[in-house]
Design a protein around this nucleic acid. Structure first.
Lengths: 227, 227
DNA sequence: CGAATTATGTAAGCTACATTACAGAACAAT
DNA sequence: ATTGTTCTGTAATGTAGCTTACATAATTCG
C-alpha cells in the first residue's frame, strides 16, 4: 500500500485526477505518530494543513477546572490544521492521537498554489466545511436538549456511521473507547455512562465489552426517536 | 441609503470592487419581511443564498418535545441559505425574523457564475465558514462544560460583541431579548435565567430592563474567568 | 509471574436546575 | 379605559445526574 492509495481515500481529494494525486504525493512529507501523542494545544500550533492518512485523532477543549470536552474524532480521510485565518475547526483545540497515525503535511505555500491551480477544489472545501458546520449544529442541539441517555444514543449513531464495521447484526465501532471518553464527548461522567450503557445492553441495543461497543443501529435509532 | 450601501456592509462581500457590488445589486431581487415571519423550516427550504441586509434572524432547532434551541442569531452582513449540498449552517433549521428584515437573494446560477468569475471569493467563503465552525466549537464546549451562570456570561459576551452598541460604560445589546429566548440559546429555562440575570445586575455586571440588556463587558469577562 | 495501572460496576448522598404554579407589571389592541 | 397578552419575579417541590467512594476485573509492564 503506497502513499497514493491513501490519498485517494481522502474525501477532500477524492475527485482529483491521478496526476494531481501524484503531485500531492511528491510535495507532502509524511509523518508517523504513536497513540497518545499530543499534536497541538491551543497555544502550540503551527501553520499548515494535515491530511490524516491512517489512524484517529481526538479534538478537544479543556475548561479551567480541567474538565475535557471532545469536540470530534477525526479518522482517515479527514483534514485538519490552520492557515492564515482559515482552519477546519481545529482552532484553539487540543489534538491528540488515539491510535498510531500517519499524517501528510501540506505547507501554506503548497496548499495555496494547489488551490489557485484548481478552482474546483475550493468549492469542494466549501462543501466540506459546510458539512462540518451542519453536523456540529445537529450535535449541539442534541447536547443542549437531550438527557444523557439520548445523548449517548445519538453519539452511538454518529460513531457507528463514521467508524462502524459490520459484524453480524451489529456494527462494531472501530475505536478503543472508554466510558470516561464517552462522557467527555457528551458532557457527562464516567459513572453515569456506565449505567446507561448497561441499560442499553440489557435492552439488546448494544453489546459492550472492555473498550469496545457494538451497535444495533436500527434499534438504537428506534430508541432515540421513541423517547 | 441605497442597495449598494447595504452590500458593502456585508462582510462576505466587503472586499469586492465597486463594479462587482453594482453587478450584485442588479442581479439580486430583494425582499422585505416583518418581525416574526418564519423563512424556513427543516421541511420547507428552497435553494439559494440570501444576504441579510438589515434586521435580524434567529436560527433554531426544535426537539420532539417542542423545546427550542436557538443555534445562532444572524445580523446585517450575514449570509445564509443552501445550494446543492452546500450551506452556511442553516440546514435542517428553522429561520425566523426577530426584527423587520431586508434580504437579497442570489440564485444558484448567479452565485455559481459569480464564484467561477472570482476565485478569491471562494477563499473568502472558506474563511467565513471556518470562522463559523470555530465559533460553534467554542460555544459548544461552553454549553457542555459550564453551569447556567457561566453560559449566560459567555452568551452576553458574544451578543455584545456581535450586536453591541456603546452606551456609557455599558454596551447595549441591540436586540429585543426575553428571558425565555436567552434560555433557549443556552439550554436553560425562563425562571432560572431571570434569577441569574438579577444576580448579575446586583453585581453591577449588567443593567436589565424589559427585553433589554446592557453589558459591562470587562466585568462580565472578569466574572467568567474567575469562577 | 507479580505489581502497577487502567477500566468497569455500583451505590449513598448531594446539588444545580427543572417543573410547576401563582402574581404583578408592562405593553398592545380595541 | 378595558381587556388580553407577554414578560418578569419568586418560591416550593422534584429529580436527573454529579460527586465521592470503594471494590473488582482486565491489561500492561518490569
Amino acid at each position: 500500500m503506497n502513499k497514493l492509495w491513501y490519498l485517494s481515500q481522502i474525501s477532500l481529494f477524492d475527485t482529483l485526477p491521478k496526476e494531481d494525486l501524484l503531485e500531492i504525493e511528491q510535495i507532502t512529507p509524511s509523518s508517523v505518530l504513536k497513540k497518545g501523542e499530543i499534536i497541538q494545544t491551543p497555544t502550540t500550533f503551527h501553520e499548515g494543513l494535515y491530511l490524516l492518512k491512517k489512524g484517529k485523532l481526538k479534538l478537544y477543549k479543556i475548561n479551567p477546572e480541567g474538565k475535557q470536552f471532545i469536540i470530534s474524532i477525526l479518522g482517515a480521510g479527514n483534514v485538519f490544521g490552520e492557515l492564515d485565518s482559515f482552519s477546519f475547526g481545529t482552532r484553539d483545540t487540543f489534538i491528540e492521537t488515539i491510535e498510531d497515525t500517519f499524517l501528510c503535511a501540506l505547507s501554506k505555500e503548497k496548499f495555496e498554489q494547489f488551490l489557485i491551480d484548481r478552482p474546483y477544489l475550493a468549492v469542494k472545501i466549501m462543501k466540506e466545511l459546510s458539512g462540518l458546520l451542519n453536523e456540529r449544529d445537529a450535535i449541539m442541539a442534541q447536547l443542549v436538549l437531550g438527557n444523557v441517555r439520548e445523548k449517548i444514543l445519538q453519539l452511538l449513531i454518529i460513531l457507528s456511521k463514521k467508524f462502524g464495521v459490520p459484524n453480524g447484526n451489529y456494527i462494531k465501532i472501530d475505536m478503543p473507547l472508554s466510558h470516561q471518553e464517552i462522557g467527555d464527548m457528551i458532557g457527562s461522567t464516567r459513572g453515569t455512562v456506565t449505567v446507561v450503557l448497561n441499560e442499553l445492553a440489557k435492552e439488546k441495543a448494544i453489546i459492550i465489552s472492555r473498550m469496545s461497543i457494538e451497535v444495533n443501529l436500527s434499534e438504537v435509532e428506534r430508541l432515540l426517536h421513541t423517547q
